[in-house]
């Protein structure tokens, strides 16, 4: 990065500055792509959606009012575009809200789960088993390091929903990692 903030770049993009868009793309495409990919699941589709998002940034930068961080605003666009892409593909996962599904009461062994996490494949496997609504909250929290009010803004839902989804996601991940860890035999 060249030190210019995303907010400053958006202001220049709003004035039609292509160089600013290029800078913005180079600085932020990885994070936006990672967010989209964990939502849509397929690299080809994720690249399509990333292009749509950056086009929207170019076209709508003037609408950015600075009430939130620039990246929060862009991820909000990405959330909308990814949801749209999923709907067009006919996946109903996006509409599935598992917050009301009761969790089994057994507590997972956090230490075993923690040890299993060292294996990237196991962690990927368990993240993939989360519902889409839960996985997106985990990603925005632990990959993007966003605050829960920012996540609520991106997903257009109450902060309480974000916390509830995280609670369910943590339990499901712990259980999955614990089981996977117990099954996992070291190769050496």
């Amino acid at each position: 990065m060249n030190g210019e903030t995303a907010e400053a770049l958006l202001a220049r993009i709003a004035r039609g500055d292509r160089k600013a868009l290029e800078r913005f793309y180079r600085d932020h495409h990885n994070r936006v792509y990672a967010f989209i990919l964990q939502r849509v699941g397929e690299p080809v589709v994720a690249a399509e959606v990333l292009n749509d998002v950056m086009l929207a940034v170019w076209r709508q930068a003037a609408q950015f009012q600075g009430r939130s961080k620039a990246l929060t605003w862009v991820l909000g666009i990405a959330h909308y575009k990814a949801t749209d892409a999923l709907r067009r593909r006919g996946r109903d996962a996006v509409l599935t809200d598992l917050d009301d599904v009761p969790e089994p009461s057994d507590e997972a062994d956090a230490a075993t789960a923690l040890a299993a996490m060292d294996d990237g494949e196991l962690l990927r496997l368990c993240l993939g088993k989360l519902s889409e609504a839960h996985r997106v909250v985990v990603h925005l929290t632990f990959f993007e390091d966003l605050a829960y009010p920012e996540i609520a803004e991106i997903l257009a839902c109450p902060v309480g929903t974000v916390k509830t989804r995280m609670m369910h996601a943590k339990r499901a991940l712990k259980r999955c990692l614990e089981r996977a860890g117990k099954w996992h035999e070291p190769l050496s």
Binding site: H29, N30, L37, N51, A113, M117, L123, L127, H139
Partner: peptide
């Protein structure tokens, strides 16, 4: 547990996309 989870997620997240190709198209 959550600290380990955060480190693990940052490690496994896929961010590999060629910026030049996408930028050219954009």
């Amino acid at each position: 547990f959550l600290t380990g989870l955060q480190q693990g997620i940052k490690r496994v997240a896929d961010t590999s996309v060629d910026p030049e190709l996408g930028l050219k198209r954009l």
